[in-house]
Design a protein around this nucleic acid. Structure first.
Lengths: 341, 341
DNA sequence: CTGAAAGCGCTTACAG
DNA sequence: CTGAAAGCGCTTACAG
């Protein structure tokens, strides 16, 4: 560390004005010469300006530019929790496309708490984000309305809300895929560790699953469907209740891969093996699903694509377009946890 | 979506100037009345100003404030990849403390690639971040020097570099803990799936492990130590080489829990069970370690605390202080994958 | 092709 | 306690 004593007096950063002064031209000339699409600037001055800018290590001040142009080129992103691998992946898709388009992404954890969400959203608005990707919607909350009221352009991602611009996976179809797979294998006694049914994801996956069961004439008792948070611990606890409700369960549908990990732990502690005693299906197809000692059958929910598409739609919105809501088709990925392989 | 036709002409956002005009006072008065520590403002005007601000939904423009004050109150964060749960956790610690202190965090993935790192860092500097937390350092790269050259205050986190302000875990000690644990269990034939040894984390964990083995008079052949990336797939591939080098291996040290997941997959495919045939130890103690069907012995590397501390140090730096580098003590967490329980 | 001016929204010494 | 002015660094019509 600074073992060489006091930091050297940091030289003031170069500005358009300082460059202009040094070159003896007007600041507006420098601005034009350095702009992405230089219009009406002689090649000679352009070269001179760019050379000096390079030499002085000039870096444009995006704060000043934002104030002047009224556009920050910053996109906000609201997520329940970025440390959840599903949201991390979504963020990756969003950020990738944002960067490509010259935008910076700012992400905030809201932990599905209204108070935090409000604070973080407020801060984003103070920072004047040009738009927002919102991935923490709950079905019966007012977040979508609040957002609408702020007037900031936004698109919901992953978790949808009726009648709102949203991009997600078709979770109803995903739930159906799981049920059809398990029914085809001959299973009839089901448990559902549903994940968070306040969110459209957990809700629709469960509804799709149950609908397919009903159509097949297979009853799933209400007590066999237990909601929980989308994390390992909560999934493990919910599984205990499922086992109480359906002691002779032969197949469990978990609302996410993380939840499935919790299910796995509880089954292990209960002395039941997968898939011999109980078949297990997760959701999302995270990396870990394939890596588990017993690879997990799951549904590829195309999170990365959802993130990319959400950004594309948001940018379209910012450009004055009217993007259509979208639901990507989920894909069943069969592995050993349902007896295959 | 906007089924109700064209968006309503969005009313221009309130500004200090618009509030001042409406109240018939000077803009500077409004600014003072709304400041966090209002100095020299009558209670009457303060109340009037705040009431109107509330009514008009005034939100201060942080972009303008930043330009004026020369401080953005934004902290940058450079990580290899946020979708890696270790970095996601680090970010959580950083962001938590940053928010508390009134700062916003901006994070960028550099994928351990020099070109991306340079681009993302440059963008951060154009955004005039007040400081940066750097978690993507490599031992023999020039990133630390480049950062120093930019003059932006920064602290390295997790991955350290000699003679630089850094906060991380004592990975030498962590590697030793693992070796001592396995030696005490009687193991003598080791494999190391080291993770990325270009980073201090992977490097020091391995060096600590080998040093403890050597002191115990136990030889670990060079071919038994295989570096890889800190992800599942790369860990799985490296394990194959370890098994070739030491066919009768009885214990494997993985440089991270994710790498351990890869090891697990390869052992499974090779028909070797954990812990009966091979004992396995990971590193980081992510949530998934405890949740695995065979719970994973690992080292708690206190990632969240590292992130919190890194921010604390950075803020201290910004305040003119001279924080000391820090290395948190790691803790061994013994579970079934090494035969316990 | 270049210059001069205005202004984005704020804060902060400086007067009074 | 309040007002008036300056200025952060930029961009963009408007002249010439």
């Amino acid at each position: 560390m600074d073992s060489d004593g006091a930091a050297p007096a940091r030289t003031r950063a170069a500005t358009l004005t300082s460059l202009a002064a040094e070159l003896g031209v007007h600041v507006s000339t420098v601005s034009r010469a350095l702009s992405d699409a230089p219009a009406g600037v002689s090649t000679a001055t352009m070269e001179a300006v760019r050379r000096l800018a390079e030499e002085r290590g000039y870096r444009s001040n995006l704060t000043a530019r934002a104030l002047r142009t009224g556009r920050t080129r910053v996109l906000g992103m609201l997520v329940p929790r970025l440390a959840d691998p599903v949201l991390a992946l979504l963020h990756e898709g969003v950020d990738e496309r944002a960067i490509e388009a010259g935008y910076t992404t700012v992400v905030a954890n809201t932990l599905d708490r209204a108070d935090l969400r409000e604070k973080r959203l407020d801060l984003m608005l103070q920072r004047r984000v040009d738009g927002a990707v919102v991935a923490d919607s709950l079905l019966h909350s007012h977040i979508a309305d609040q957002l609408e009221a702020t007037g900031v352009p936004h698109v919901l991602a992953l978790r949808c809300v009726p009648d709102r611009l949203c991009v997600g996976t078709d979770d109803l179809a995903g739930g159906r895929l799981v049920a059809e797979h398990l029914l085809a294998l001959g299973h009839r006694r089901f448990g559902v560790v549903a994940g968070d049914t306040r969110a459209s994801t957990g809700h629709e996956r469960t509804v799709g699953f149950l609908a397919a069961c009903e159509e097949a004439g297979v009853e799933v008792r209400p007590e066999a469907v237990v909601p929980c948070l989308f994390d390992v611990r909560s999934g493990a606890a919910a599984t205990e209740r499922v086992l109480e409700a359906v002691p002779d369960v032969t197949a469990i549908f978990a609302g996410s891969d993380n939840v499935a990990l919790g299910v796995l732990g509880t089954l292990r502690d209960a002395g039941r093996s997968v898939p011999d005693d109980v078949a297990l299906v997760g959701y999302n197809d995270l990396d870990l699903a394939a890596a588990l000692p017993v690879p997990l059958t799951t549904v590829d929910s195309r999170i990365l694509e959802v993130g990319q598409l959400a950004t594309r739609m948001l940018l379209e919105l910012l450009g004055g377009g009217s993007p259509e809501p979208a639901r990507l088709a989920p894909r069943l990925v069969v592995r050993a946890s349902t007896g295959a392989g």
